[in-house]
Design a protein around this nucleic acid. Sequence first.
DNA 1: ATCAAAATCCCTTTTTCAGGGGATAATAAA
DNA 2: TTTATTATCCCCTGAAAAAGGGATTTTGAT
Lengths: 207, 207
Amino acid sequence: MNKIKVLVVDDHPMVLEGMRSMLAQINFVHICGTVCSAYGAVESIKQLTPDIVITDINMPEISGIELALKIKNEFPDVKVIAMSTFKERSYISQMIQNGASGYLVKSASKEEIEEAILSVYEGKLYMSLDINLSATDKQELDNIPILSSREKEVLLLIADGFTNPQIAAKLFISLHTVDSHRKNLLTKFTVNNTASLIKLAARYNMV
Amino acid sequence: MNKIKVLVVDDHPMVLEGMRSMLAQINFVHICGTVCSAYGAVESIKQLTPDIVITDINMPEISGIELALKIKNEFPDVKVIAMSTFKERSYISQMIQNGASGYLVKSASKEEIEEAILSVYEGKLYMSLDINLSATDKQELDNIPILSSREKEVLLLIADGFTNPQIAAKLFISLHTVDSHRKNLLTKFTVNNTASLIKLAARYNMV
DNA sequence: ATCAAAATCCCTTTTTCAGGGGATAATAAA
DNA sequence: TTTATTATCCCCTGAAAAAGGGATTTTGAT
């Protein structure tokens, strides 16, 4: 059996080293390279022709989300596994939409990484969301409200400091409508003013 | 020369592996252990008697900040190096106040880690703040306003959704005073309403 | 001892928010 | 096709925040 060629992209040398060390223990995996920025990633893929790219989501300048899109466009056969701390839950769906096949938390064990690589290599999806979360973390995830797209728009504009009339003008809707969305946001987040709303939204990486 | 005994604490196995691999390349360092939670750390220090503990700041349940305090109380001779992504800048001062001797970003290179360990072992302070920051990150750091302790209190209460009258009651000060602090916060953050204020404060890990 | 900064308090006016109510098309899901 | 959701619009009231002005007393640093 040919080894699965894996390229790792992360801006933290420490994580790269960790991945390198962990992947070295998996016999069916060959680490064909590690890259510390999304800039070098595309070039490296061209040269090293990996089967799977494991990439951090949070990177300066070019995020893992954009990188996933680029990879899917230029190298449709290359599978992408996104990696991050559990906190960036809201980014995961974007990552999947951009063609990623898997999601790993950075607290993943060697076994999980192994499973993720195998699953993704076989064309399946792999998600390691529920693992390694503390009880409070899980509860937090469950409490993240589901917003409509319009509500998301309004939320972002609120967070950027726009007043209701300004938001109404921007979205070409009535002031009353903005007010309704705003009320619904407060209800969905079970808070009673803007400060709490934005604090929570920030914690969930929605703003 | 005796090797410097180092214990690493981090809840991400990947980072632990990375540190282990990087420290293994430094000849004057002996990794006497790695621990994946602050709970085990104290016990391990007792058994392994490290010279230096390198600990992540962000850990579930017990943070690195609390851990640093515990270590300084129970093992005053053990030096502590705090480690995190650059984002938690606001925690650094707390870490230092709690007796940490150094600060490493997770994007630190082997050389930086080497230097940090040496410096701290010799009783100096080591800070790796300005390294590996992108231009925009640096600019952001520069723009982080310096708040008085009172302002921090007020900011936290605002973020928790308390109104000015409630804050006044909690802090035993006049409503007018709260209002002044609030105005000063808006000025210092160069924003013009609460939503923007909390969004920024959240980004700077102040709430 | 002096100066600067921080923290405190006071006032006014305009604007915005919060919370309450309810209603109607359009769309998506069952 | 019926139901539920979403997005839209409207009204009201009182509370709170934004923005402007200014003043005094602690506290900390030089």
